[in-house]
Amino acid sequence: MSIQHFRVALIPFFAAFCLPVFAHPETLVKVKDAEDQLGARVGYIELDLNSGKILESFRPEERFPMMSTFKVLLCGAVLSRVDAGQEQLGRRIHYSQNDLVEYSPVTEKHLTDGMTVRELCSAAITMSDNTAANLLLTTIGGPKELTAFLHNMGDHVTRLDRWEPELNEAIPNDERDTTMPAAMATTLRKLLTGELLTLASRQQLIDWMEADKVAGPLLRSALPAGWFIADKSGAGERGSRGIIAALGPDGKPSRIVVIYTTGSQATMDERNRQIAEIGASLIKHW
């Protein structure tokens, strides 16, 4: 067993022997301040990774656009098919120029040779490549099948209805392509620590998230040296922004954090800054 596999296998073990965790309302004060600064709703939840206990939450059962955070769930569904012998990570998928959609920095470079399922998941999570996500959605049967996968996990809230990039439209009061912070946090925890996926697939999923290259201005910008984070960000229309993450000190994750916002007129930089400040408060009061 590799060191990384050992780390993920012992996530519940280490967490069980940690000192009790206590909620700190100071972080919620910052979440509410972010709402004021952005002029928009902000949803927040913080779960203990081992027990699933909610440590703090704000608007945990209000719907927010998922945006690209759905790509972690998508690759979880792909990995479940791999575990069941219905898919192979090494299978190569070929596609054409007509398949390319807006923001496809990886797939646009491989029109000639195609990409493997493993490479597509890596591109979808680490670079948020939209064509990679659409190609992977095709392998599982489309958005409705991802929703069905989530329902089978016990998540009857999260739903995907459309493809990239239309799913980022974020129309107010439109339930399409949305989740709730509580539902997303619980589902992410199941994917990373539950028995739904094999140990190898859980490790692969967290490795992809740990290698995320496009979430630097968010929670990662607030992390002290030595902290662990595996995350996936999302951005959408109407001032929408979000991030889902597993993080913790001492090089291992111990909490799940989900943050979503929508309806702001603020710039992307300002949305990023507010999420980073929430992260800084979380870490300060850990």
Rank of each mutant, 00 (worst) to 15 (best):
P60K: 14
I11Q: 05
V117I: 13
A123P: 00
H151F: 10
P181K: 00
N130S: 05
V29G: 15
D269R: 11
D161K: 03
H94P: 09
T139N: 10
R220W: 02
A123M: 03
D212I: 02
L111C: 10
Y95T: 03
S254A: 15
K53T: 15
R81S: 09
E145L: 09
M184W: 01
W163Y: 12
T131F: 05
G194A: 11
I243A: 04
D36S: 13
N130A: 03
E35W: 01
T126N: 07
V29Q: 15
V257I: 11
G142V: 02
N272Q: 05
L49T: 08
L160A: 11
R91M: 06
A235F: 02
E195S: 12
P143N: 04
N152V: 10
L137N: 04
P105N: 05
S240A: 13
A182G: 13
Q37R: 13
L160R: 01
H156Y: 14
M209N: 00
Q265E: 14
G248S: 03
K30M: 12
A9K: 12
A235G: 11
L146C: 05
G216L: 08
Q97M: 15
H5S: 05
T131M: 05
Q204S: 12
N168V: 06
I3N: 14
F228W: 05
D83F: 02
D212E: 04
L135Y: 03
G216C: 08
W163G: 09
G236P: 00
G234D: 00
A182I: 15
G216Q: 13
Q37Y: 15
T262S: 11
V117M: 10
T147F: 02
V214W: 05
S51C: 05
A23N: 06
T262Y: 15
K213T: 09
L73S: 08
R91S: 07
D99R: 08
R271I: 11
S96H: 11
E35S: 05
A84Q: 13
A183I: 10
G43C: 04
E175Q: 14
M268F: 11
N272I: 03
I243F: 05
C121H: 00
M268G: 07
A40E: 05
L89P: 07
E87C: 07
E175G: 10
P20D: 15
L135F: 06
R189F: 12
M180H: 14
S254N: 13
G85P: 01
A123S: 09
F149E: 07
M180Q: 15
V106Q: 10
L150V: 12
P217R: 09
K232F: 00
T193R: 15
T179Q: 00
Q88I: 11
K109V: 12
G279M: 04
E87K: 03
I243W: 04
E164G: 00
T261D: 01
H5N: 10
A40K: 03
Q97I: 13
D250E: 14
G242E: 01
L199G: 15
M268N: 07
W227I: 02
Q86L: 13
H24E: 12
E145V: 12
G90E: 15
L89G: 06
M153T: 12
G52N: 08
G141H: 07
W227C: 02
G142A: 04
A215W: 02
I256S: 01
L218A: 04
Y103E: 03
L49V: 13
A185G: 14
L150Y: 08
P65F: 03
L199K: 11
G194W: 08
Q97T: 13
S80C: 09
Q203Y: 09
C75Q: 01
A230L: 05
H94A: 11
M127F: 11
D174E: 08
M209W: 03
H94G: 10
H156F: 10
T178Y: 02
E210C: 12
E195K: 11
T267Y: 08
F64R: 01
A280P: 01
I93Y: 06
L247C: 07
T158M: 03
N168P: 02
P12G: 11
S2V: 08
K144D: 15
K144R: 14
G239E: 01
M153E: 08
D161I: 04
R159Y: 06
R202L: 05
A245V: 05
D207E: 14
G234Q: 01
F13K: 04
P65S: 05
N152Y: 15
I283T: 09
E56L: 08
T179K: 00
S240C: 08
G114A: 05
S57M: 13
P105W: 04
P65N: 04
R189C: 12
E145M: 13
Q86W: 10
L136N: 01
F58Y: 15
T131A: 10
L137W: 04
D113E: 14
A34T: 10
A266L: 14
V29I: 14
A40P: 03
R238W: 10
E87P: 02
T198N: 13
F149N: 06
K109W: 09
L73W: 03
T131C: 08
L196P: 13
G251P: 08
T179G: 01
H24C: 08
T138N: 15
P60D: 15
S80M: 12
T158V: 04
T131N: 04
G141M: 06
D269V: 13
E108W: 08
I93S: 03
F228T: 07
K232R: 06
A225N: 15
Q204V: 11
M153P: 01
E237F: 09
L146K: 00
G52R: 05
Q86A: 14
L205S: 01
S281I: 14
T262L: 07
C75K: 00
P25S: 11
W163D: 08
D36Y: 13
S254G: 13
T131E: 03
L38V: 07
I3T: 10
V117W: 01
D231P: 04
